[in-house]
Design a protein around this nucleic acid. Structure first.
Lengths: 211, 211
DNA sequence: TAGGGAATCGTACAGGCGTGCTGTAATAGG
DNA sequence: CCTATTACAGCACGCCTGTACGATTCCCTA
């Protein structure tokens, strides 16, 4: 058996190629031919790893979620001050460098396409839950509270839960704007906006939980 | 001269059709054939009003901006309490009913496509400026300050300008989330979220501008 | 060393796409 | 009534798409 290539690893490699094509040409420009050309393989060769185009795009979108989740758990393992950890967690969702910019482009493209393509609906909902979880992690870190363990675990305090929902909206808006108008936001500006927001949340905690 | 139809009015009618197709099938599904079928005309007939597909989509996108602007100026002319006016202004940007939902779908689809399609770049930037202006109008209304006259006119107070930028991010995030996850937001919930945000801004004004 | 399955290639097909072009019905002005 | 002009229909062309499938190359195993 000439299993010269690691099947899963090759899929990951090809996924990076797909990200690049989506980021450059949009999701409607991510045709099997373009992806194959960018990867330096034939269209037939691509289909040994992905049954069809839908599977290709779906896998690429899932890979974004995995990539983000991996980086975030890395920050959770590190021993950092709460505010700094919250900052780093949220920064993983923003287009602060080329890698994250590509991921954001893919995320946004798939999110919008999920309006039409039902094969992305499940992933879209998972993305929502994951993002909300990330916001809860940031809120908990910000206030020095114990971090929620699993996705979907709400705060008992409805005030904190409201803060997480608000932060979720804000982060999505910031992601949308920074991805769509990159010339309006330097990386420093993005970090500053996140920082200011976290300070605001921290300040609100004092009025919510006096003592 | 058999000018039986008003050219401009017919373009507006067809534009509504285009909105519906984009909302249902996405912008990549808005082909000239589908639009023609939805409008009950032939592809050739469509081309008497729009030179090509790009012009069709571009006009439809511009029409969204015009439609929103028209409703907002209506609220500005009305004599209302500041907070209520700010609320109504911002609500025009959200998918609170079927009409606005379609507009939001078109807006979002065009915004994302503008990443790739340079023919939408100008409109995208105009949309940004217009939205920022709307946020400034809301901030001014909220604080009982005189409204800025023209698009692009910044507040002299950098604190107010920062509030407008923050509100802009928040509104974009709320629009994205409510458009993408409509089952998570009832119209009442959307209004409530906007209301809470305006109250927060109002409260911040007291600390920013004591007296 | 022989063979077999994995990996990849290249082509073919059917369908949808934007767009150009021609034909035709209908009306307002002379 | 005649005719120029508008509104629209419909077809044709070339391109690009996703997918199916047979051919080919290559490495590992027996």
């Amino acid at each position: 058996m000439p299993k010269i290539v690691d099947h899963e690893q090759r899929r990951e490699e090809l996924t990076r190629i797909v990200w690049g094509v989506i980021s450059r040409d949009g999701i409607e420009g991510a045709t099997v031919r373009k992806v194959a050309e960018a990867a330096g393989v034939s269209v037939g060769g691509l289909r040994h790893y992905f049954d069809n185009q839908r599977g290709l795009l779906s896998f690429a979108a899932q890979a974004v979620a995995r990539s983000v989740a991996k980086r975030i758990t890395g920050h959770l393992d590190a021993d950092l001050p709460g505010m700094q950890r919250a900052q780093l967690i949220l920064e993983e969702l923003l287009p602060l460098d080329d890698n994250r910019r590509v991921e954001v482009d893919v995320w946004l493209a798939c999110l919008v396409r999920s309006h039409v393509d039902e094969s992305l609906a499940e992933l879209r909902d998972a993305s929502w839950s994951g993002e909300r979880h990330i916001c809860r992690l940031a809120i908990a870190s910000c206030h020095g509270l114990p971090l929620p363990d699993r996705v979907g675990e709400e705060f008992a305090d409805t005030g904190l839960e409201g803060q997480a929902a608000r932060l979720h909206v804000f982060v999505d808006g910031l992601t949308l704007q920074t991805a769509t108008f990159p010339h309006n936001f330097t990386p420093q500006a993005m970090r500053r906006i996140v920082h200011d927001e976290l300070r605001l949340i921290e300040a609100q905690s004092k009025s919510l939980r006096p003592g």
